[in-house]
Design a protein around this nucleic acid. Sequence first.
DNA 1: TATGAATGAGTATTCATTCAT
DNA 2: AATGAATGAATACTCATTCAT
Lengths: 206, 206, 206, 206
Amino acid sequence: MTERGGARVPRGEARDRIVAAATELFGRQGYEATTTRQIVEAAQVTKGAMYHWFSSKEELLTSIYRELLAEQTARLEAIAGGAGPADVRLHDAVTDLFAHMDEHAEPLTVWARSMHLVAGEHAAAVRAERRRYQHLFQDLVEEGQKTGVFRGDVLATVVTNTFLSGIVQIYRWFRPEGPLTRRELGEQMVALFLDGVRTVPTAEPA
Amino acid sequence: MTERGGARVPRGEARDRIVAAATELFGRQGYEATTTRQIVEAAQVTKGAMYHWFSSKEELLTSIYRELLAEQTARLEAIAGGAGPADVRLHDAVTDLFAHMDEHAEPLTVWARSMHLVAGEHAAAVRAERRRYQHLFQDLVEEGQKTGVFRGDVLATVVTNTFLSGIVQIYRWFRPEGPLTRRELGEQMVALFLDGVRTVPTAEPA
Amino acid sequence: MTERGGARVPRGEARDRIVAAATELFGRQGYEATTTRQIVEAAQVTKGAMYHWFSSKEELLTSIYRELLAEQTARLEAIAGGAGPADVRLHDAVTDLFAHMDEHAEPLTVWARSMHLVAGEHAAAVRAERRRYQHLFQDLVEEGQKTGVFRGDVLATVVTNTFLSGIVQIYRWFRPEGPLTRRELGEQMVALFLDGVRTVPTAEPA
Amino acid sequence: MTERGGARVPRGEARDRIVAAATELFGRQGYEATTTRQIVEAAQVTKGAMYHWFSSKEELLTSIYRELLAEQTARLEAIAGGAGPADVRLHDAVTDLFAHMDEHAEPLTVWARSMHLVAGEHAAAVRAERRRYQHLFQDLVEEGQKTGVFRGDVLATVVTNTFLSGIVQIYRWFRPEGPLTRRELGEQMVALFLDGVRTVPTAEPA
DNA sequence: TATGAATGAGTATTCATTCAT
DNA sequence: AATGAATGAATACTCATTCAT
């Protein structure tokens, strides 16, 4: 979303208004439940204009993804490729992700909700980018496992997917008006991911 | 509305066939992509019969989930209300949840995928039941925090939501044909939840 | 309607409850807009019960008519067949009709609204009865024309239909809470029918 | 909703054909008995085209009526606002109304038959316009009462509603093939309204 | 004197998309 | 860089009625 909350009708060029409207609607109602009619009404353009800029509703969805994903991937690359122990870099990566969610909450919601609906040609491209992002994350986990900083009895895929699931679902329950800011939430979640809930990790049950 | 609130729902042959067909189709194609026509054809009933038992496609979806949720809530209640330290009971609860998911993977996938499409009355009813489930979980976490078995620097809501998010999302990446069974995955995820990825929890970063 | 306002669920035998519910619904929403489902729910019977007593929705409608029409016809017959000048008898007939509308407002509404929908076998019977009623009225008008008490330059059909239209439409605008009782309204309408609005009937325009 | 409130409605060929077809079908079979399928087939357009111009079948019905009502209101305004005694102007207004009905018998029949099926927003809009028409009429009656040309012992509302009921119902019994033309009928009805049936208005009964 | 599950043809409406201008 | 009328196939849902029990 290129627009901060408050203004109802997005200003700017038609294309931007379409993207902003679609992002907001996809995020709030889901991709399937959003009609092209709603999009053009919210963006205050005609259907023709929308199809002038995007060849289909699906392309509109993938556009939103890819823009976001590209940025996120670049940031993760920078941090993961840095120096220092894996756990510290993981911590920094997640912290950074949360910092950016403040500004990109809506497209991330879209991503979480509607990713699996992208099919056909578009799917391939998006899935490839998405896999690249996930791999950067997973590589970091695997590196930590090799250097002994992370446990080896849990598969790196399990770790990565569990982490990302937790993050991607935040929009479902987190309320910015609540007791925590998004950044504080980030700190708590990283702490949880890294060290778990248990204070005395020795007493293995069963 | 054909179902009488609270009372045991009568099961005709037709009703069972409808539920089975819908579960399978929703799970495979998603809720929106499944048509009532497909459901009645698969269930070998007429449309009228389907609408005799369920007042809408949405009620059919929520029915499937509510039945399952009720069962899961009962199981969690039994385990969480037992004796022993909180971490052991949490471990047992999650293990049991995974065992149960093994038998009911389809309807759970259905729900995880289509939850956000349900609105209004139905959503409210399900959310209420779902909240009850979550509270059972959260109470267990809070108890552990009070007894010192769980860390107190992370809010119980954060713990609970993070756990459940990880679980609810597994249908997105887990493949039963892969290296792990669902139960093995369960073991790894509990381990992760309880003790984190890090082997040396002392070296707190930043 | 066999029921005075106040009680929601009509007491009494099933058949009576069905008639009462149908009358109320047909009167309020119209025949076409009322579903058998609404009728059986309001009457608190099953569909089977309804079809046990009435072979179709249409028969239910005609039943309501015929009961009312038979009574009304009998009363009109008694008055129209009496002695005295035609205008006095017409006056008495209309007065009597208004007196009875107090108790039969609902079925009269049904009659006014849905008469024209009755088709097929039922139609013939109802139309015959309805025509009989109208003819009693019209005979009275024609008699008055012959005896010179009524004007001859307006067709008796026009007079009759205009009278009855005015009466049948009352439910559309008359409110019992308003300045007039139904009987007072009756007096005013008869006065209007008999002598017109104009005080000086001599000055023929055009 | 495709129509923009207040502004002149653009007329494509297709829109005109839809209105014409709907008017004819509604008039002949009734609103409920007419399907959208029949309308689009008769108008030789697709369903999509119909829903492009009218947001629902109900809007199509109300459109037909509102257009007509607006015209009639304008005519009544012109005549009622003229000079001369109230009874002459009333006579002229009704005569003009019948002349107009002669040309627009179909849409008027449509409305008289189906009015009660329209609910909600559309009904409210039409009722407001309809009330405006009725008030013009009633004002004329009240003026006549003040100037002594009309009797004062009958409420103006009663007069107005009785008049208009008689007119609105003529579609139920009038047959153009019968002994009278619509204009002749108009003359007889005005005569009746103004001076009543009775030749000797002195002999007040009871 | 009911029950209630089931029918099946039919309904109004939606929606992503196109294309001449 | 747009418009907006039109498409056409598909969709969820309704409803009077039946019938074995």
